[in-house]
Simulated scan of single mutants.
Amino acid sequence: MSISMREIAKIAGVSSATVSRVLNGSNLVTEDTTQRIRKIVQDLNFVPNNSAIHLKNGKSQIYGIIIPDLTNPFFTETVKIFEELLVENEKELLVANTDFHATRTQRSVRRMLLRRVDGVALLTSEFEAAPLESLVQNRIPVVTTDHYRTAPGMSDIVVDFAGGMSQLVAHLKSFGHRNLGFIGGTEGLVTSRVRRESFLDAVVKQGLSSREGWIVEGDFKVDGGSVAMAKILSQAELPTAVVTANDLTAIGALRTAHEKGLRIPEDISITGCDDIAMSDIVFPPLTTLRISRKEYARLLFEALRAGTEDLASSGKQYTLPTKLVVRQSTGPVPGTHKLRHRRTR
């Protein structure tokens, strides 16, 4: 059931102009009245259909982007490039950060609906179907990442983790590594599962091995990588190389390895994924999988623009390639068959 701004005003006992001021963030309305109107708007799931930000053609010229972690350079770098693309095309950007919480994703989608954005790029994995449906129902095209599903009004960008992990594992194999560990992402996320399965597939296909104690969950952040690496290093026998779900995780793994007195890569090799700017600065510089933020931003824009131009069109699946970047954090397998702990003094 749809409801008008006039009806909201009637329920609140105020004028339509007052409701409009509240929805547009004006500070000319008292706090009590503002809170009362916002509660009614929320309870009735009201989305204004005649927002002042609309132009005559019904387009706001605003695109939304929802990211899981604003502190991760991969996402901030992507957002920066995406915004530059929008500015070149005389459009604006609305950014929302979920911090890996599904409820925040829902609130972020709500913000996008209220602002009547022309399209939304969802770079998160932790979302329910309902927020997606609410966007599509409101004729707002959506592009997701690693959702592995398309539909009318909804496109998806698939990162080629399978190809990337195959390159990475082959690189380690060429150095003589046979026993590999893995630090994954946050449990329950599709992208975490895809990265772990891509790693395991590559290990099996190339005749290498891993084991349960060497495969540990992380959280895509530095501290999570540190804790996970400590778990791997507590095993009686250690892998000679550890592959991680992203560069921040690898940086955390490097930190713990250094603290344990291990030399990288002489005692153990460590790899990342993303190729953020920081990966070339840490010691030693990280061997990693490059995911081009420039290409990512371009695909996001292309998918949203296509959806905006033809709302009835079927969604399309795009592939974002990965590329192996070899630096100093990987090297030949240690000479001994069993890597033993080097104790710090």
Rank of each mutant, 00 (worst) to 15 (best):
residue 18 T to A: 12
residue 302 E to V: 07
residue 174 S to A: 15
residue 202 A to Q: 02
residue 175 F to C: 01
residue 272 G to R: 06
residue 130 A to D: 12
residue 302 E to K: 14
residue 50 N to D: 15
residue 298 R to P: 07
residue 286 L to P: 01
residue 123 L to V: 13
residue 141 P to E: 13
residue 296 Y to V: 12
residue 30 T to C: 09
residue 207 G to Y: 10
residue 90 E to W: 03
residue 153 G to N: 11
residue 13 G to I: 05
residue 102 A to L: 14
residue 12 A to L: 08
residue 49 N to D: 14
residue 111 R to G: 08
residue 298 R to G: 03
residue 84 E to M: 12
residue 166 S to N: 14
residue 299 L to E: 13
residue 157 I to E: 08
residue 1 M to V: 15
residue 20 S to P: 10
residue 339 L to A: 06
residue 41 V to A: 08
residue 168 L to R: 11
residue 99 D to W: 13
residue 232 I to K: 00
residue 252 G to N: 00
residue 284 P to D: 00
residue 226 S to W: 09
residue 9 A to C: 07
residue 145 T to G: 08
residue 272 G to C: 09
residue 344 T to M: 07
residue 279 S to M: 05
residue 132 L to T: 02
residue 193 R to P: 00
residue 161 F to S: 13
residue 89 N to P: 02
residue 254 L to H: 00
residue 136 V to L: 15
residue 118 D to N: 15
residue 330 T to A: 03
residue 178 R to P: 07
residue 207 G to S: 08
residue 25 G to K: 07
residue 6 R to D: 13
residue 199 F to C: 08
residue 282 V to L: 03
residue 247 D to A: 04
residue 339 L to N: 02
residue 321 P to L: 13
residue 221 K to V: 06
residue 185 G to V: 06
residue 249 T to Y: 12
residue 234 S to V: 00
residue 36 R to D: 03
residue 60 S to M: 07
residue 19 V to G: 03
residue 332 P to L: 09
residue 79 V to S: 10
residue 139 R to Y: 10
residue 126 E to I: 11
residue 146 D to E: 12
residue 160 D to C: 03
residue 4 S to D: 05
residue 30 T to I: 12
residue 66 I to A: 05
residue 169 V to P: 10
residue 143 V to G: 02
residue 64 G to Q: 06
residue 125 S to Y: 09
residue 151 A to E: 11
residue 219 D to M: 03
residue 214 W to R: 01
residue 320 L to A: 06
residue 27 N to T: 11
residue 66 I to E: 02
residue 157 I to V: 12
residue 135 L to T: 03
residue 89 N to F: 06
residue 203 V to A: 02
residue 200 L to D: 04
residue 333 V to P: 02
residue 154 M to N: 01
residue 254 L to F: 01
residue 340 R to C: 05
residue 92 E to A: 13
residue 241 A to W: 01
residue 325 V to Q: 09
residue 300 L to W: 04
residue 136 V to K: 15
residue 196 R to H: 13
residue 151 A to N: 12
residue 279 S to Y: 08
residue 24 N to C: 05
residue 138 N to R: 14
residue 252 G to E: 05
residue 221 K to S: 07
residue 83 E to G: 05
residue 49 N to F: 14
residue 39 K to T: 11
residue 51 S to G: 15
residue 224 G to L: 03
residue 307 G to T: 11
residue 299 L to P: 14
residue 319 T to K: 15
residue 147 H to W: 10
residue 37 I to E: 02
residue 191 T to G: 06
residue 297 A to C: 06
residue 85 L to G: 02
residue 3 I to L: 09
residue 13 G to E: 07
residue 126 E to F: 12
residue 322 T to C: 13
residue 29 V to S: 09
residue 45 N to A: 11
residue 1 M to Y: 06
residue 18 T to M: 10
residue 308 T to H: 12
residue 312 A to M: 14
residue 149 R to V: 14
residue 249 T to E: 08
residue 247 D to I: 08
residue 256 T to C: 01
residue 177 H to F: 01
residue 31 E to I: 06
residue 286 L to N: 01
residue 139 R to F: 09
residue 54 H to L: 15
residue 110 R to Q: 14
residue 316 K to N: 11
residue 318 Y to Q: 11
residue 236 A to P: 15
residue 207 G to M: 08
residue 181 G to L: 00
residue 283 F to C: 00
residue 134 S to V: 12
residue 176 G to I: 10
residue 126 E to Y: 13
residue 73 P to N: 13
residue 291 I to K: 15
residue 40 I to H: 01
